[in-house]
């Protein structure tokens, strides 16, 4: 694998995570438990969509085949997507949504902090902007996980169920492979495994405050960020997201 191929893969991983998760979060608009949460979730989704435009925009530039961020978002099929499986999991109840968000945000913020010092100025620039937004995302999702974990017996039960359900999807965020090895060698991005200890410590602290028990298993599903085997959920998301572009090829919107 060449450096540029690995770089493109890496940028798709960044952009597809924010694209797919942003899309999921946007599904809440108009349906959240309370108005203030509705507005807050939309802000998170808007930040993630904005980050997608930057990451996929740069991916298209690095690829050099004239594809725009929209081309990449709207005209690739599921096997070309490089998001982690966690991001594409369905919203479920509000507890699952916030648990997914927290597990992701906590890793996202650690990664972006490192990327702000990337050897590639463009990556560093995007990360410097995104890290400010994501620092707030994690603050908010963390507080919500704690509040609901510690809240009523029902909210506690639902949050524990959410954690049990999503825990097997967390590990994929920290696996290394050829792509990440090349990126680390170039000083563009850290090896994901190097973030694990800090993430574990933060998550442990949050869950203990939330009175939730982390499952005693390090089993991790894989196949999202390599594109080898996504879950069935992604295809359904794409049929919605890409429908207009697919049904009316070449139209401008």
């Amino acid at each position: 694998m060449t450096r540029d191929m690995a770089f493109f893969e890496f940028l798709c991983r960044m952009g597809d995570n924010t694209l797919v998760l942003g899309h999921r979060v946007s599904e809440w608009c108009g349906h959240a438990p309370v108005l203030e949460e509705d507005i807050a979730l939309a802000n998170t989704a808007l930040d993630l969509i904005g980050q997608t435009q930057m990451w996929l925009g740069l991916a298209g530039e690095v690829e050099g085949e004239g594809r725009s961020a929209d081309d990449l978002a709207m005209l690739r099929d599921a096997w070309d997507f490089r998001n982690v499986l966690l991001a594409e999991q369905p919203n479920g109840d509000f507890g699952q949504t916030m648990m997914r968000q927290y597990l992701f945000d906590q890793a996202h913020v650690l990664l972006l902090q490192k990327l702000a010092g990337s050897s590639d100025e463009r990556v560093a620039g995007i990360a410097a902007k995104a890290v400010k937004e994501v620092a707030y995302h994690v603050e908010r999702s963390r507080d919500t996980v704690i509040g609901l974990g510690d809240g009523t017996s029902e909210s506690h039960r639902r949050m524990q169920a959410a954690l049990d359900l999503l825990w097997p999807y967390a590990g994929e965020m920290f696996t290394d492979d050829e792509v990440s090895g090349i990126m680390a060698g170039e000083g563009i991005a850290p090896e994901p495994s190097s973030l694990r200890a800090a993430w574990d410590a933060a998550v442990q602290e949050t869950m203990s405050e939330a009175t939730l028990v982390i499952p005693d298993s390090d089993f991790a599903h894989a196949g999202g960020k390599t594109g080898f085997r996504h879950s069935e959920h992604l295809g359904h998301m794409l049929t919605q997201m890409q429908w207009l572009q697919r049904a009316y090829p070449g139209a401008r919107w």
Binding site: V34, L35, E36, I39, A40, N43, Y136, E139, R140, D143, G147
Partner: peptide, 20 residues
């Protein structure tokens, strides 16, 4: 104005609602 369960969340909600 807005609604929130406590002061911490009120500050966060204010950020989301009133500084868009």
């Amino acid at each position: 104005s807005l609604h929130a369960p406590d002061a911490d969340m009120a500050v966060k909600n204010a950020r989301d609602v009133y500084t868009r």
